[in-house]
Amino acid sequence: MFRLKSVVTGLGMAAGFAFGAAVLVAQELPGNALATQSLRPYWHVFIAYAIAIALVLGWVISIGRRLRDVEERLGG
């Protein structure tokens, strides 16, 4: 179970890092096309990706917890 947990944490951190990097890159994009645009589409993309990763990881964690629970009771 430890393995799954550390994998989840690692992936979560990777996701956070990716978002952070993407936010920085998005703000530094050349101004020609973006000068007239707001940053709103970027936020929507980030929120959408965050929701996707949060729900998937949430499901992973919930299955992991339930598995551990059942295994403890099976073992004990």
Binding site: L11, A14, A15, A18, A21, A22, V25, Y49, A52, I53, V56
Partner: peptide
């Protein structure tokens, strides 16, 4: 793979 997809779609 999903992380890779995220990376690809950003960069």
């Amino acid at each position: 793979g999903m992380m890779f997809v995220f990376w690809l779609s950003f960069f």
